[in-house]
Design a protein around this nucleic acid. Structure first.
Lengths: 252, 252
DNA sequence: CGATGCCTTGAATGAAATCAAGGCAGGTGG
DNA sequence: CCACCTGCCTTGATTTCATTCAAGGCATCG
């Protein structure tokens, strides 16, 4: 099944990885970089809406998002869907496949994505030869966990408006730190209201009404298939949430 | 602050660790065991209701639950509380403190707990000298992540009754795999309905009514400060959830 | 014997889901 | 070029589910 997808040999050499240029991410030492470059099998291009991994599947690969947005989700038998988190450049995808036999969630592309593909088999080698990179993987897992904690608090205890404000300003701040620096240009979150609804645990209709209120307050502007954050500070205050202080992030 | 708590030198040597005897957990190689034994600083005893870590604190230690139950939670300014997950024997506590500067959640004891205390500083050493243990830590982090994913699906998309059934059977199955083998004796989950409410994102009153219905269906029995699962299979069906197949688990 | 902690229940209120339409832009095919 | 989809957003009316309010019960403990 993976073979039916457009997998191509590495086009973007790790030495010239565009993510390394951003100062959100930490630098590799030369031996680390060599290892990673060798570890990389190729690239996967995914178009919007394309399924990258499916719950219950076994996946021999491990990915890192190089460009574009995606999301992880689970569905119940009757179709109720919960989006668990979003995938942005620098995020790892499919680590769970190494630990559990089967994937416990699905992954879908939101925009056109480029993913770096790694050989799962060689993960052990990474742990043996590069403890610092192993530690980075743990770091990434712990960071994912802390995002999920915050989402749980949000869905469990925040009101609809607070939840929506939280989600949008959360994504906004993540987008800001991974977007190629564009002079003053505003960032658009590439979502539909259905995605928002499925993330917040609300119905589409109620999500729409809630977003309308935020828009009426001048906090956001909703475009076709996208959301523009106009007043991030206002959203922070509605949500009662501020992003945790973060030093330079690792990525693989 | 940690010094005001009853920290005692190791009483239970790792060689005779009671968890290693359970066949839920994997065995250590002799060198691994030596390292862990040396890594262990002491034990922490926590009584029910005692705070083990607080959000915003910096924690120099890392723990593993040796006995007893606890939980991780977050609170909003106005007091709304969300329980994120429960801590059972074999679970790691405080890894996040290594990655983020400050803890992003709090930890409290539910029953009397014994925790093994490790020196955070030496975690890097563990990564350098024992890649297999490093991998185990990643394994534990990924497992925690997959539990949080399931909780998110539950709170976001399941009905009150489904959620309650899920939580109880989830805890029941976790308890079963870590409890010292007691011949046919039933397991009691050491919770109050307030804990259940704060885990499910429901009010106490509505939680009570929901649990009542499950009890009326003969699925559970509610005791004072505890819940007895009578019909696990029934709960699985209400929740539409079964525990993922799991091979022997690592622990540190 | 009065507190306190935990569970229980009924009644009133409120938030969110569901039901039901409709609008509007972009794309396609006759 | 127009007719007709289709996907995404919007709005009002109704119903369902969950919260809040209010009280009481019943053990345990000092």
């Amino acid at each position: 099944m993976a073979s039916s997808r457009p997998i191509i040999p590495p086009r973007i050499p790790c030495v010239r990885c565009p993510l390394r240029r951003l100062d959100t991410f930490r630098d590799f030492s030369p031996p680390e970089l060599d290892f990673i470059a060798d570890f990389k099998l190729g690239e996967l291009i995914a178009d919007p809406g394309m399924s990258i991994m499916g719950e219950g599947e076994r996946h021999p690969q491990l990915y890192t998002v190089l460009a574009g947005w995606g999301f992880r989700y689970k569905i119940l038998e009757d179709g109720r869907r919960q989006i668990l988190n979003y995938l942005l450049p620098g995020d790892m995808v499919g680590l769970q496949g190494n630990i559990m036999l089967e994937m416990q969630h699905s992954v879908e592309a939101l925009t056109r994505m480029t993913l770096c593909m790694f050989e799962r088999e060689r993960l052990i080698e990474l742990y043996q030869r590069h403890p610092s990179l192993a530690y980075d993987i743990t770091w990434l897992a712990a960071r994912e966990e802390s995002m999920l904690d915050e989402h749980l608090l949000s869905i469990g205890r925040r009101s609809a408006a607070e939840r929506a404000a939280y989600l949008l300003v959360f994504l906004h701040s993540r987008a800001k730190s991974t977007a190629p620096v564009q002079a003053g240009q505003s960032i658009t979150l590439p979502l539909t209201q259905q995605h928002v609804a499925d993330t917040l645990g609300l119905s589409l209709v109620h999500t729409n009404k809630t977003l309308r209120k935020l828009a009426d307050q001048g906090l956001i502007r909703w475009l076709d298939r996208g959301c523009e954050v106009i007043n991030a500070e206002g959203l922070h205050q509605v949500a009662e949430w501020w992003p945790p202080a973060e030093s330079k992030r690792p990525f693989i």
